[in-house]
Simulated scan of single mutants.
Amino acid sequence: MNLYFRFIWLFIWRIGHCKRIGFLGTSRIDYRVLPLDCDINLHLTNSRYPAFMDLARTYLIAEMGLMKAFLKNRWLPIVNAAEFTYIRDIKPFEKFTINTKIVGWDEKYFYIEHRMHTERGLHCIAHVRGVFMCRGKQVPIETLIAAAGFTGDVPEMPAEVVKWKQFLQLKKQRNI
């Protein structure tokens, strides 16, 4: 993560004042593109998108009410895979919003969707697959779901995430 000041601000101010959402709710956080976030093309550089999404996932955990459990149990989020679709650029000083939500899980991974948009429309859709680790071992999915107090059914994953999972499995099989 290369947005240290924004990360510190997130912990000092924003997490303490965030609203609560359900486990399958959508988290929303706003940022503004600063000059150091831009590349030579004078727009938000591609490497900043995943960094901002790191912050958005941290905020999602806080809004779900899981931050204390994460800190107490020393659970660490680890991204296993990510895919990005860039639609249009975000200009310097432009305000943008990241909507983040869990779209599903399987026996090992959580699948999270990010949507970045401005007043001009949608700019990026990304899907992230991740696990949570503690002392070198994976935290069981059931443990995390129980900590969130979620008792509902596993949501049906979007078709594009199902296809992406199949693609990741194929890559793994072909490169063993």
Score class of each variant (00 low, 15 high):
Ile112Arg: 00
Thr85Val: 07
Ile112Ser: 00
Phe93Pro: 06
Ala56Lys: 02
Val131Trp: 07
Met116Cys: 07
His114Gln: 14
Gly121Thr: 12
Ile78Thr: 13
Val139Trp: 10
Leu76Ile: 15
Gly104Trp: 02
His114Ser: 02
Arg57Leu: 03
Gly130Trp: 11
Met116Leu: 15
Pro92Met: 11
Thr97Pro: 02
Arg88Asn: 14
Ala56Phe: 02
Lys137Phe: 09
Glu83His: 08
Leu60Asp: 13
Ala81Ser: 12
Ala126Ile: 04
Arg88Lys: 15
Arg57Pro: 01
Thr58Asn: 09
Phe93Leu: 15
Met133Phe: 08
Met116Ile: 14
Arg135Ser: 14
Phe70Trp: 05
Met53Thr: 02
Pro92Cys: 11
Met116Ser: 09
Glu119Ser: 12
Gly104Pro: 06
Ala62Arg: 00
Glu107Val: 04
His123Val: 04
Arg120Tyr: 09
Ile141Gln: 06
Asp89Met: 08
Tyr86Ala: 04
Asn80Gln: 10
Ile102Lys: 04
Arg135Trp: 10
Arg135His: 14
Pro77Arg: 04
Gly121Ser: 12
Phe110His: 08
Val79Phe: 04
Thr100Met: 03
Leu66Arg: 00
Val131His: 08
Glu107Lys: 13
Leu144Val: 12
Gly65Ala: 06
Met116Val: 11
His127Thr: 09
Met53Asp: 06
Glu113Arg: 14
Phe70Cys: 05
Tyr111Pro: 01
Phe110Gln: 06
Lys72Leu: 11
Cys134Asn: 15
Arg129Leu: 10
Ala81Pro: 01
Ile102Met: 11
Phe70Lys: 01
Gly121Arg: 15
Tyr111Gln: 03
Phe70Val: 10
Ile61Trp: 01
Ile98Thr: 03
Gly65Asp: 07
Lys108Cys: 09
Glu83Val: 12
Ala81Gln: 08
Thr58Lys: 05
Lys101Thr: 08
Glu142Lys: 14
Gly130Cys: 10
Arg120Leu: 11
Lys72Pro: 01
Phe52Glu: 03
Ile141Phe: 04
Glu119Gln: 14
Asn80Phe: 07
Arg57Lys: 13
Asp89Arg: 14
Met116Gln: 07
Tyr59Lys: 12
Ile61Arg: 00
Met116His: 03
Trp75Tyr: 08
Asp106Lys: 09
Tyr86Ile: 04
Phe110Asn: 03
Lys91Gly: 07
Glu94Tyr: 10
Val128Ile: 09
Gly104Glu: 05
Pro92Val: 10
Lys101Phe: 04
Leu122Lys: 14
Phe93Thr: 08
Arg57Ala: 01
Tyr109Phe: 15
Glu94Asp: 06
His127Met: 11
Ile102Val: 12
Asn99His: 14
Tyr59Gly: 06
Tyr111Val: 02
Ile61Leu: 03
Trp105Ser: 08
Lys68Trp: 12
Asp106Val: 10
Glu83Phe: 04
Thr85Glu: 13
Leu66Gly: 00
Gly121Leu: 13
Val139Asp: 11
Ile145Ala: 01
Thr143Ala: 08
